[in-house]
Simulated assay, not measured.
Amino acid sequence: MVRVHDPLAKVPAYLISQRLTQCHSPEQAVQKVDAVIICTEWPLYQKIDWLYMKELMNKPYIFDGRNMLDAKQMISMGYDYYGVGNR
């Protein structure tokens, strides 16, 4: 199962299935997930309460494709954080 969230982009209806769900909020998107992949630099994602988000996840893995989060801060919160993108 893949859950996606973007405050503006909408997944075309023909792609929505039991394997892909578009969520209305970041909190909904991280429910019981094993990893978060950040692909965009929306300010919303920088302002998230990441401690709270960690409680919603199965495993605290973040792959930050934009290097938009502070790696030291995320690691200090208990995340397995991987900054894999360019800024």
Rank of each mutant, 00 (worst) to 15 (best):
Y82D: 00
M68A: 01
T40C: 08
L8E: 08
H24N: 10
I16S: 00
V2L: 15
Y79V: 13
T21K: 13
N67A: 02
S17L: 08
A71K: 03
A13D: 15
Q73C: 08
D64S: 07
T21A: 05
R3L: 01
Y14E: 12
G65R: 09
D70S: 10
Y52S: 12
W50M: 09
C23K: 02
L69R: 11
Q46K: 15
K47P: 00
P12M: 02
V33P: 00
M68T: 06
N67S: 10
Q73I: 10
Q18D: 15
R87S: 13
K10V: 12
L15E: 11
Y52R: 13
R66I: 04
A29C: 15
R19G: 06
H24P: 00
I62T: 10
L51M: 12
V2H: 10
R87Q: 13
G65K: 07
V2D: 06
V2R: 10
G65W: 08
R87F: 08
G65V: 05
K10W: 01
K47E: 14
D6Q: 05
H5C: 03
G85F: 07
V36R: 03
R66Y: 02
M74A: 03
Q18N: 13
P60A: 15
P60Y: 05
L69W: 15
K32L: 12
V4A: 11
N86P: 00
V33K: 08
Q22V: 09
M57V: 11
A9T: 11
L15A: 04
Y81N: 05
K59W: 13
E27F: 03
A29S: 11
R19H: 12
V11W: 14
N58I: 11
L8Y: 11
E41D: 14
Y82W: 13
V30I: 14
G78P: 06
I38L: 15
Q73Y: 04
I37G: 01
M68I: 15
Y82N: 02
M1N: 05
L44P: 06
K59S: 14
Y61N: 13
Q73F: 03
K72T: 10
P43S: 10
N58R: 15
G78E: 06
L69F: 12
P7D: 02
G85Y: 08
D49E: 09
M77V: 02
G85P: 06
L51I: 12
A13Q: 14
I37E: 00
N67Q: 09
